[in-house]
């Protein structure tokens, strides 16, 4: 079904910021995937050396980083009252 609304191509500054925040929120999982793929290199690099507790700290550190990022972004994005109105051109 065709859309009837004509989209606004440019937004005012505040709307633009929100849009970019949402982009950032969408990128967080990819950041997570990249950071969590790093342990894959450990086994190849040092097959006989145990990575030990530093590996544990790394994984939990990345985990915490993702949580903090998600929390900050969700709080910033949430202050957008028209969050669903702009969905039309979010894609």
């Amino acid at each position: 079904m065709s859309r009837q609304t004509t989209k606004t191509v440019f937004l005012e500054k505040a709307g633009y910021r929100k849009r970019r925040l949402r982009d950032a929120a969408k990128l967080v999982p990819f950041l997570g995937i990249v950071l969590l793929a790093i342990p894959l290199a450990w086994s190849g690099a040092a097959p006989h050396e145990s990575i030990g507790s530093s590996g544990l700290l790394y994984v939990f550190g990345v985990w915490l980083l993702l949580i903090v990022l998600a929390a900050m972004l969700s709080i910033w994005v949430r202050s957008d009252p028209d969050i669903d109105g702009q969905d039309r051109d979010a894609k």
Partner: peptide, 15 residues
């Protein structure tokens, strides 16, 4: 931790 990291990524990427 993989059992918990998967859902973490899904929820963090909820958009």
């Amino acid at each position: 931790v993989t059992i918990y990291l998967g859902p973490t990524l899904v929820m963090v990427g909820w958009w």
